[in-house]
């Protein structure tokens, strides 16, 4: 099966909790977040089998793979890749925007990932989500995905990216409250480096929110434990 991807990061120490891993950045996303530059990257195609073979050769050094976005669940090839790698003993982390709850359900039920990270793009309000992502139907899907994750045994991490003025630190308490209703205890917050970058102390003052260090290190920094 052919996977469309933008690039492969051959070594990351932060993309999988506590393990060096390879990150496959898939190409294609249903959302159109105004700050996202990922879609500009050149798309390449490869057979999942080729990737599996390549990663298997290096399994002695790297036995964890993160399948990240744009939105991996947009392609069934991502699930195929995860399944094949899991069969061969790899640890898998999957990133998602939460836009494909059915695909996410497959991941969870078939245990295709050891860790799932879901990135919330805006306050869970239809209008605001549409303002950030360009999608009016996203919020319902996000709630469905949160349902899937909260009732699963898979280790989950929830992140979000502030994008003032549409999504500012003042929106965090409400978001955190909603997430806590689903049983999530921590939220990793990243700053979009545009106008109104939120000061660290402001984020800290909003309870459960964790500080990250900026969009440039979106997948860097230290992961805390999941919920």
């Amino acid at each position: 099966m052919e996977l469309v991807f933008s690039h492969i990061e051959h070594l990351s120490t932060t993309a999988y909790p506590g393990k060096p891993c390879t990150v496959v950045h898939t190409h294609g996303c249903p959302l159109g977040c105004f700050y996202c530059a990922a879609e500009d990257a050149n798309a390449k195609k490869t057979e999942t089998q080729k990737l599996v073979k390549l990663f298997e050769e290096g399994k002695e050094l790297i036995d964890a793979v993160a399948i990240a976005g744009c939105e991996p669940l947009m392609q069934s090839a991502s699930l195929e890749l995860a399944a094949q790698l899991k069969e061969r003993g790899f640890d898998i982390k999957l990133h998602t925007t939460g836009y494909y709850p059915s695909a996410l359900e497959s991941v969870v039920e078939e245990r295709l990932a050891d860790v799932v990270e879901m990135d919330i793009k805006a306050p869970l309000d239809t209008e605001k989500y549409a303002m950030v992502t360009g999608r009016g139907d996203a919020v319902d899907r996000i709630f469905q995905s949160l349902d899937v994750l909260s009732s699963s045994q898979v280790r989950c991490q929830v992140t979000t990216t502030l994008a003032p003025p549409v999504f500012s630190h003042e929106d965090l308490p409400e978001l955190v409250h909603v997430l806590s209703c689903y049983g999530f205890k921590k939220l990793r917050v990243k700053n979009y480096p545009g106008e109104g970058v939120v000061e660290p102390w402001l984020l800290h003052s909003h309870g459960e929110a964790l500080l990250s260090r900026g969009v440039a290190e979106c997948f860097a920094g230290r992961w805390s434990d999941s919920n």
């Binding site: 070594l11 990351s12 060096p20 050094l61 260090r213 290190e217 860097a220 230290r222």
Partner: peptide, 15 residues
Amino acid sequence: LISEALPEVTALMEL
């Protein structure tokens, strides 16, 4: 070469 400005220590140890 590590791409992250702050690499994760446990992962480095394992590597």
